[in-house]
């Protein structure tokens, strides 16, 4: 019974969240540019329909397996990542003792899927996009692992369920370790190829890894990126904002509200922040952000020793 509820919640959150993310993404553009909001609500559906009807373009000798499979794998990783998030006490799809490691594995495989999407098209812009994304993606991945371990420290467990329980008993992690959430949001920008961390699908490369994708393939890639945003936001809400915890309203609703709030923050950051040149960004990540995440981990450790 609980398992059925967990599966239903997962797919409902993933599908409805993806649709909402698409609308929010257009609404953010409308808000910034002063265009009418009503059009922004209809635009995602209109664009999706147009992409569905458009024909497919073939590149010269693409990798026939990974090229069509990359968007599917991206979407699946979003679903698997979301599966460790509990929707209410006892309602979780994969209740394993190493949930946070599983999420980390999904992050790592996402970088690979984006690289493969760029590489398999056998086209220059797409390859450059995938290649430089990996360079930035790998250190950001390390950073996120430090931050996640810090979030798991108060729970003394790698299980996501336990992390929520520890926040129920004590403080929410966002209060204990606010820089952790900020650093984790960077991972969100990286995983969903957004704004300052969009080195894969950026416009300066004519669309990067999606440059050669058209029609349903391009639509699938977009949907997968938005689904990953939902999955990431739910994870951030669970690890740092207490997940389903909250007064008055039922638990799952709290999780949805928090997820939408994180989604809004990531979308806003994606539209508002500029992208650094890759070499400078690489230096920033290795020299500033990565040591900072390590410092967060050390501080959380010290804090837990002093105030257990």
């Amino acid at each position: 019974m609980m398992a059925v509820a967990a599966f239903v919640s997962l797919f409902a959150l993933l599908i409805l969240g993806t649709a909402l993310a698409a609308v929010m993404d257009r609404a953010a553009v409308a808000l910034a540019s002063g265009r009418p909001m009503g059009a922004a609500l209809k635009e995602p559906a209109r664009r999706a329909a147009a992409l569905l009807l458009r024909q497919k373009v073939e590149t010269e000798r693409p990798d026939s397996i990974t090229w069509p499979l990359a968007p599917v794998a991206y979407l699946m990783l979003a679903a698997v990542g979301l599966s460790v998030v509990p929707f209410a006490p006892g309602v979780v799809v994969t209740d394993i003792s190493t949930g946070i490691v599983l999420w980390g594995a999904c992050e790592a495989l996402t970088v690979i899927v984006v690289f493969l999407h760029g590489w398999s098209a056998n086209a220059p812009m797409a390859l450059i996009g995938g290649y430089r994304y990996v360079g930035i993606g790998l250190p950001v991945l390390l950073l996120s692992m430090f931050v996640l371990i810090a979030a798991a420290l108060p729970a003394e467990s790698l299980s996501v369920v336990e992390i929520v329980r520890a926040q129920e008993a004590g403080l929410w992690n966002v209060v204990r370790q606010p820089p952790g959430l900020a650093l984790f949001l960077i991972l969100g920008l990286m995983l969903t190829l957004r704004g300052p961390f969009d080195y894969a699908d950026a416009e300066d490369l004519a669309g990067g890894t999606k440059a050669e994708a058209s029609g349903p393939h391009r639509l699938a890639w977009r949907v997968a990126r938005l689904a990953m945003l939902v999955s990431f936001s739910a994870m951030a809400a669970t690890a740092f904002l207490g997940g389903y915890l909250g007064p008055v309203l039922p638990g799952p609703l709290w999780l949805v509200l928090k997820t939408v709030a994180v989604m809004a923050a990531v979308i806003a950051a994606g539209h508002m922040l500029a992208r650094l040149p890759p070499s400078r960004m690489l230096t920033t990540v290795w020299v500033v952000l990565l040591p900072l995440s390590f410092l967060v981990l050390v501080l959380v450790g010290v804090e837990l020793l002093l105030w257990p």
Partner: peptide, 23 residues
């Protein structure tokens, strides 16, 4: 469960680096 999933994580990063060197 730990060693299995950690293998996925570690090898994913390692093979990605390998592919990077290949290219």
């Amino acid at each position: 469960p730990y060693i299995g999933i950690a293998t996925v994580f570690m090898m994913a990063v390692e093979m990605m680096v390998m592919a990077l060197f290949m290219v």
